[in-house]
Nucleic acid binder design. Structure first.
Lengths: 248, 248
DNA sequence: CTAAAAGCAAGAGCACTGCTCACATTTCTT
DNA sequence: AAGAAATGTGAGCAGTGCTCTTGCTTTTAG
């Protein structure tokens, strides 16, 4: 005779394992939201899940390993939010896309301050980001850069139709520094396949810095007793920044 | 007869206390530079100073208290560096001052990454900055804003000599947003006594965000595998930012 | 100058942490 | 069904922040 219901060959064990892994992460996230990353306790998680603390180590090799998983999830969480927001706007409305993305990042940061701090704050001591994190970490900057690229390509296409040479809305930055700038950005220029000139990319990175900087300054308390209405200030700043980054 | 050398009335004990306090902080700073803030251990400090761990509590009420002292020191350290650099440049060379200040902050951050993370990274869990920190924390932003104010005043003085009304190099940002902007910055406008219009101050804060954001992105590893030469990129960015902030 | 008061150091101890290891138990594989 | 692999358990180690009692020294007051 054959067994009535043979437990799936790769089945039941792997499934319960995935579930427990998710439960551990969920508990960790819950704890993270309350107390922050530094006081995340494996034993507390084990207590909440009614298991021995040593059992956690069957699922995560160490506390840092758990943190890394949370970091990856956080990167993906903010990444998917940004991508969804960006997807809801016509590709050619680059200013709107930029502002919407920035506001979405800030909103997510406010809803998940500890997760934001986890990925954009100071890295935990002696902790070096493993390779698994670098991929999801690129989602947000890639979204921002894609706005830049779209804008650059459409604007150069327009000017090419009008004029002949002299492409793009280049500014008065001395062209003697172009070489140095290109060299300093060689890696990322290579990565995006030189779809935009170095100066445009530089503007994008600087904008990324301003977006991230303003959010962090506010979230980490440096605007306390200074800025009365951070949300309004941020939104107006992003409108202004979009113009400075993309042109009027 | 009188005593030969009467130990200073408020003297010997207070002095040795100050010395020991300094030694504790020094040891803590040493440990901070190596392992980062989160793994700062009172017991390790006690071991290094050959004293009982409980004795530390005669000098600092808690670990957070020690951290606060280090935070204040860090704020002062970067503040004094910035102020010295700024003092070495003629008051009217606002662009140069801005760039020099920004570069000084970045240099300090690279020399003291953990102290930078301590003050500009994510705040430690459940930790709210006590009042002692807000004063030294203002030194850097005040230096940046003073550049703005100096520039604004000299540029308006110049244009007032030339034209009649229409003061300052205002840009095309819709004036309908001015009210909202002013309101959102009411606190800091009040603090600096409305020496500059809200839009100018906003530009300053945005620049502060970009300076801080670029340094943090780089220092916290977000430029890994992206920017080949962060120093060159930062310097060029600051020259460009100075122009965007102050005008050409 | 002496006695009380205040400051200081030490050590034991509590509750907590991450992590390891030997040992059961359960599930999958052959 | 038997062996192998994965999983859960509890004890235990080394470390942490912090408290409290106990003795000692310095400072201050009478």
């Amino acid at each position: 005779m054959s067994k009535d219901v043979p437990p799936r060959a790769p089945g039941v064990r792997a499934r319960v394992r995935a579930e427990l892994t998710a439960e551990i992460k969920a508990s960790a996230r819950r704890q993270l939201a309350v107390d922050g990353a530094a006081s995340l306790s494996l034993r507390a998680i084990a207590r909440e899940l009614d298991m021995a603390s040593s059992a956690i180590y069957r699922y995560f090799a160490s506390r840092d390993d758990l943190l890394t998983a949370l970091i990856v999830d956080a990167y993906d969480a903010v990444g998917v939010v940004v991508e969804q927001v960006d997807a809801g706007i016509a590709r050619d409305l680059c200013h709107e896309r930029f502002v919407a993305i920035a506001n979405a990042i800030r909103a997510w940061a406010h809803e998940n301050p500890h997760e934001y701090a986890l990925i954009y704050g100071s890295p935990v001591p002696g902790y070096t980001a493993p390779d698994d994190t670098i991929d999801p970490a690129t989602r947000v900057p890639v979204a921002l850069i894609s706005v830049l690229v779209d804008h650059y390509q459409s604007s150069t296409a327009a000017t090419e139709r009008a004029a002949t040479s002299k492409a793009g809305g280049g500014d008065a930055v001395a062209s003697t520094t172009d070489d140095a700038l290109s060299a300093s950005l060689a890696q990322i220029l290579d990565f995006i396949d030189y779809q935009v000139p170095a100066s445009t990319l530089a503007r994008g990175l600087q904008s990324w810095g301003e977006v991230f900087g303003l959010i962090s300054l506010e979230l980490f308390g440096h605007f306390n007793n200074a800025v009365s209405d951070p949300e309004t200030f941020f939104e107006l700043s992003m409108v202004s920044l979009a113009e400075r980054t993309l042109g009027p």
